[in-house]
Each structure stands twice: as C-alpha cells, then as structure tokens.
Design a protein around this nucleic acid. Sequence first.
DNA 1: ATTATTTACTGGTATAGACAACTATAAACC
DNA 2: GGTTTATAGTTGTCTATACCAGTAAATAAT
Lengths: 243, 243
Amino acid sequence: MNPLLKKNVPLPLYYQIEEYLKQKIEEKEFEVGKMIPSERELSERFEVSRMTVRQAVTNLVNAGVLYREKGKGTYVAEKKIEQPLKGLTSFTEDMKRRGMTSSSLLLAFDVIEAPRDVRKKLDLSEEGKVYCIQRIRIADDKPMAIETTFMPQELLPHLTEDIVHGSIYQYVEHDLGMAISQARQIIEARAADEEEAEYLNISPHSPVLHIERKSFLAQSVPFEVVKSTYRADRYKFITDIDR
Amino acid sequence: MNPLLKKNVPLPLYYQIEEYLKQKIEEKEFEVGKMIPSERELSERFEVSRMTVRQAVTNLVNAGVLYREKGKGTYVAEKKIEQPLKGLTSFTEDMKRRGMTSSSLLLAFDVIEAPRDVRKKLDLSEEGKVYCIQRIRIADDKPMAIETTFMPQELLPHLTEDIVHGSIYQYVEHDLGMAISQARQIIEARAADEEEAEYLNISPHSPVLHIERKSFLAQSVPFEVVKSTYRADRYKFITDIDR
DNA sequence: ATTATTTACTGGTATAGACAACTATAAACC
DNA sequence: GGTTTATAGTTGTCTATACCAGTAAATAAT
C-alpha cells in the first residue's frame, strides 16, 4: 500500500499532493530555484495518474509557489517578500505570524438591529438583524485591540458563542462552505477615547490604529463589517502591493 | 465541420473556449449571476471533451470571471468592486482619485550617505549614497502629509529637481524603462512631534498616520524607501484584498 | 574539433470515460 | 396537503492514454 496518500478519505488526492509539495518546500528538501520531481515521476511515486499530479502542480503554480518551464521542468519559486498579510487573515493567524500567542475576551454576543452605517454597508433591508460580537483581542497576555464584528443573521442562522470562541472564518469556510473572497479595509489613525483607553490599558488620547474591514463572499455578497481599534504602540499594519 | 473552434491552429482549444465565454459575457448573452451552459453541454457544442471545457472554465474561475456551485452550475460573477488603490499610486494619483487637487512644497533635495536603517532596507553597501527628497504634500491647498523619499543614487544617476517636481514614477518607468513591480507598506498610528505638527498645521501630539513604503523593481531590487506622515483628520488609507 | 542528428527527457494539450457528491424537481406515498 | 423517495442534471475527482513541442545531452557524421 502507498503510505504517502490516504485514499478513501474525503481529502482529494490532488490536495494531498499539494500539501506534500508545500511541506517539502518548507523543509527545504525542494530548494528555491531547483527543479521538483517531474510530473511523471510524481505520478509513479504517488501511484496516481499524471493528470492528478498536474492538477496539484497547477494549483501551486497559480498560487505562485511553483513555476513551470516547458521542456525543462517545474521549479520552486522564490518566496515573495516573505508572505505577509496577503489574503484575509484572522486576528489569530495574524498574531501567529508575528510570533505571538493570542487569546480573546468576549465582551458581547448579541443579535441587534443593525446601526444605520452597518445596515448600509451590509446591504440590509429595514429590519436587518445582525450579530454584534465585541471582543478584546489579547496578544502575549496584553490587550492588543478591541474588535466589533457585525454579520447578517440571515447568513449565519446558527452562530453560537462556542463558534465565536473558535475561528469564525474556519466555521464559515469549512462548515458552511461559503468562501470569503474579497475585502476592503479602511485604516486611519485616531486618539483613543476613554472607553478604548480603559480596555486597551493605555492613556486617553494616545494614538490608536482604527481599521474597518468589509468582507465579501464569493458572489460579492457583503458578509461582515469589522471595526477594530489597535494599540498603536503594539501594532503595525503591513500590506503588500503587486502591480 | 464545427465552425465555433478552429482546430489545427496553434491556439489551444481551451483558450478559444475561454475567449468565446468572455465574449458572450461581454455581449450580455450570458448575464451576470445567471448560469452558463453546463460543462457537458459545452463539450457537445464545441465537440471537445469535457476535460477541455473544464480547463477553460477553471481558468475563468481563477480569473474571477465565473464561479461554480457544485450540483447547480457555473455562473457569471459580478464585476469586482470598482478598482480602488490597487497597484502603486503616487500621491498625485491618490489625491486625484479622491477628487482633490494636489501640489507639493520641496523642503530638501540632497544626496547623502544613507542612514543605517535606510541602507539596510535598500541593500546598500557601506558608502551607499542616496537621494533624500523631502516634500510637504498639499491637497486642496491644505497640508496633507510630509513625505521623505530615499532612492539609491546609482539607480538614478541623473535625477534632478525638475524631475522631482513632476512625477518620479513616470520618469522611472517611462524614461528609464524600469518597472516598479512590488511594494510593502507598514502603516502605523503615532502622535505628531513638534516638527511634524508645525509642517502639517496641527497641534502637537495629534494622531498622525505614518506609512513607510519600500518599493521593488521587477527583479526584486529595492528601489526606494518612502516615509510619509499623514494628517489623521484628513487621510484614510484604503486597501483591498483578494483571496 | 565541430557540427548535425538522434534520443530521452520535460511540460502542454486533449480524449473518453467513470464514479462521487450535491441540488432541484418530479413522482410516489401516506 | 404534506412528506418521502426516486431521478435527472450539475460540478468534483480521477484514470489511463496519446500525441505535441520544447530542452539538453549523448551520439553520429563531417
């Protein structure tokens, strides 16, 4: 039996091959700029058809992890300036990448009538109910941010506090099968008000970084509005731009 | 013979199908949100195998033109939220998009030895000389930001004050033929110091948005480091993210 | 030695078919 | 009428194979 891939498992073979290749690259077994095994060799090694290997490799090429050269081979791409906040990252992921431990303190979990600005941003009708989830985000045991999330109730009728304690993004993508595909963020500097100062354990009027994110599902359906207030002394926002 | 696709032609069939689908969408024959013909139907219509159709459709899905729903069909995606600050924008372009007039006040145009942090960020050797260009950026006749740009002298040996008064980006890309392809920005909130407060015409300790941008040429050669300090009451940074 | 040619590799394109998973509708049942 | 059950249609995954086109190195011809 072939121990490399698990068959009769809900994970597609091509996906497992993707993970295998990414891991080998991570472990430096496949080096940057060097050729990876040919598609035919991989298909023999994994005992799958070459088309299946191709599907895996094509995905990684699209993701910028590999690049192909016709007649020569497939190579490991240089890392773009070390992968930053590309893609949508949750607070948890974000902190992990920064090498910090993270936790949360749930301040509120309510279903309310959406405030005017939120209703507009989420394209809701008159009586649009939304979840209002307020959390203090903690990194390395010190408060990092206050985060208030608004999500239409109709999109997630069965959201519970338990789920909120885990990863909402993972719940939405994995359990509900909805893909969050796009977001716009508005970032500004402000002076902390009394309440923010208290929660964040800083002096009033200290500068804070305010980030408002509006996320969309695959079909451009507005999915959430998140308003975050970060301690300016602890948090910098990093973004990469490609032409 | 099938008139829809040209066989015995160097254009791959899947590519011709992509073009066909894009054209039908353009012509509104396939409407936004509506289902396009199923993969099996397309494969019969074009007299190709379903895998070939799939390759075409997959490419368009990756490009965001279509989206699939398992068990239901493949649909035409809405056009993405109107193109925002995607790509690198100069201050001038940025203000233009915000509907403001812009101008600049040149404070300094020098060639200096790079400060330690800049030398490191630009990958310069010991005696790396850099241009140091300091400007007050003005929008609608009021100061918006202080901007300090550092660029290696060796990359632009003939930079003049005149060019700085125009668009440096245009000079680099159009006249020198170098492509700026990537950038990383670090955004943080700060309190304005005395000097910044004076230049920006705000009170000291007011919050300001500090943005540091490091741009790269096509081959990952560091090209510039720009440090900007924006008035928080006048400027918000907007960024879009795609998965 | 230099130059063609062959050969063996690479990825690129395409076929024809199979079964699984999911969805919506129609039909059968109670 | 309301519920369950088939059924047909969709995309998702995968196989086994074939031939094309580009690359590079070994081989043969000059």
